[in-house]
Design a protein around this nucleic acid. Structure first.
Lengths: 200, 200
DNA sequence: GCGGGCATGTAAACGGTTACATGATTCA
DNA sequence: TGAATCATGTAACCGTTTACATGCCCGC
């Protein structure tokens, strides 16, 4: 149900087409909840049949078609219910840490490659989130600004604060992953040296 | 392929039945890569047809049956290949942080409930990992000890070090999540007070 | 005799990935 | 005229979740 909630969260900002939503998912929001277009379009159709959203169909040129979706009362309620209800935690399935537990079975070169790739992966994620935080602080986030335009003055600070809070959590996680992999590189070097000393 | 790798990693420790593997998955290993029994039994069957493992069939009493699996040469190679190959990172899909970004739409009570639940969730995960680290350090981990028994002296330190390293990474993540949610509680209190002051 | 742990699965549904597929509009 | 971007999907497959299903062995 989280894909649905993510879509509703975006549509609450303002009516959007599947294509526009997909663009958002490939950017900032997609780094919290990823979804490819092949999942977005069918889900929007499903939500429309359940009347959580309604499509305003626009013709484009002679044959083109564009469906702009609006959140209905029922959709708004579904989102609020999701926000106030309990959250299901999916069980951990962490390939990197699984592999880390058995690194003694990998070649030394593969250990370095693995840890360095882990660092690059999380550094690029960190970059996205730090940029997003900076954009929010500078009040230059298009989506957030659209939302703020329809938000009561008193609620603006709260809206901004929670958005920053969310991204800061993801950034903290990324930093934790990077530090961990860096400790891993040091550990690996130390173990290699030890091995060389004991069996020369 | 990670479920498969996790199963191979455990079976490399020593031959085990589906039931024993399932027990391991519901304990320490399962907190890195969760898998229910309904996934384990069919996967073992599949791996057996692909000859990565072989089943030693034992009858139990009159009708009972027990299949103890051994890793074959091909299975060992498949594991080593997985260890040395690149790792696929699954795209982020984090319901907690998604919700956090829109907390202004939740009731104040739900915000507290959500953050407190996040804290309990990660505290219990942290507990598991810290216990596991302590068990490893005290050389009291049954699975690790079985592995060490068939490991050359020179490789023991490495085996222990990487296992601890893996669990430390997970513990660090848990701590990061707990701290984040605690900052969230403080933020939420501050915002509530601000709101009360501006519109009394 | 009964409860708990041992032992094995099947089946349906759901969510996500990957590949395939098409065509229109807009601007250089 | 051709490339980029807008715009919309389908289909097959795979992995995961949830629920269902059965029955033996051992110790109390």
């Amino acid at each position: 149900m989280s894909l649905r909630s993510a879509l509703l969260a975006l549509l609450r900002i303002g009516p959007m087409s599947g294509y526009e939503l997909q663009k958002q998912f490939s950017q900032s929001v997609g780094h919290v909840w990823h979804a490819p277009d092949s999942q977005i379009y069918p889900e929007l159709r499903k939500m429309a049949t359940e009347e959580l959203i309604v499509a305003e169909e626009q013709t484009r040129g002679s044959a083109g078609m564009r469906r702009v979706y609006h959140v209905t009362e029922a959709g708004e309620q579904a989102f609020i219910d999701w926000m106030n209800g309990p959250l299901k935690y999916q069980r951990t399935r962490d390939a990197a840490h699984l592999r880390a537990a058995y690194l003694e079975s990998a070649d030394q070169a593969s250990v370095y490659a693995f840890l360095n790739e882990h660092i690059s992966h999380w550094e690029s994620e960190l970059q996205v989130w730090e940029d997003e935080i900076a954009t929010i602080e500078a009040l230059e986030s298009p989506m957030l600004n659209r939302r703020l335009a329809v938000t009561a003055d008193a609620d603006r600070e709260v809206t901004i604060a929670y958005k920053k809070f969310a991204y800061e959590g993801l950034a903290a996680r990324a930093r934790s992953e990077i530090e961990w992999a860096q400790r891993g590189l040091q550990l690996s070097k130390r173990l290699e040296r030890t091995a060389a000393e004991t069996s020369p």
